[in-house]
Design a protein around this nucleic acid. Structure first.
Lengths: 108, 108
DNA sequence: TGAAACTACTACGACAGATGAAGTAATTAT
DNA sequence: ATAATTACTTCATCTGTCGTAGTAGTTTCA
């Protein structure tokens, strides 16, 4: 059975997806989401960074620093095995969610 | 551009769908949603009734009473033209939302 | 050289929708 | 008689999202 919040926090899933191919950081992820969706979805900064906090607290991502001496210091993130498992669950859940919602959609 | 909350309130859309074929009331809608989704989605009572309030406030549905002298008094709802327009918009939006989210879903 | 734009966050507060818990009240089933 | 079902209502809480604003370094370009 799906809950209403299934529908809500897909930002987390999007972020995890962005980390599947390797580490990244906030600004980059933000840009990549924009590009991937052709500006159809733009994640707000505050949403993004608060998602990082939540994901890290849940053990789905880990943060670390690289010593680069250019620009403002970045916080890098990588996905954890737990995060990967969570991501896969969400993908499965999304299929069910689509099926469910589609039953309430009418084509005219 | 879609917002994050697009993803959230699809409960409203489901309720409006349930009213497309004619008036109904809370308990019935709740049961119908259950059946339609084969228990995959069960809308919580409080969610349902607070959605009614919101939908009516927005002019998407209208409430009325029928004089039946059996059982506890029911509040019936019907969809308004504005509600229908909103429903249609949501259907369109849902297609875009699906496309967007699907770009973050991986098949394994 | 100096202002604007871009990169890369952080902090704080507000809001809306979803939900849990609990209660009311009538009818039907056992 | 009692439980289950129907049909809500009230209230308080939680969570994720988002607006506003601020900090701070780098690059662009006029």
């Amino acid at each position: 059975m799906i809950s209403s919040d299934v529908i809500r926090g897909y930002n987390d899933t999007m972020i995890l997806y962005m980390l599947l191919d390797g580490e990244s950081y906030g600004y980059e992820i933000s840009k990549n989401i924009r590009q991937l969706t052709q500006e159809k979805y733009v994640m707000k900064e505050t949403t993004l960074y608060s998602a990082f906090t939540r994901l890290e607290k849940n053990g789905y991502i880990e943060s670390f620093y690289l010593d680069e001496s250019l620009g403002k210091r970045r916080t890098y993130y990588r996905i954890t095995p737990l995060g990967l498992a969570y991501y896969r669950e969400k993908c499965e859940e999304w299929k069910v969610t689509q099926e469910v919602v589609n039953q309430f959609i009418k084509e005219w």
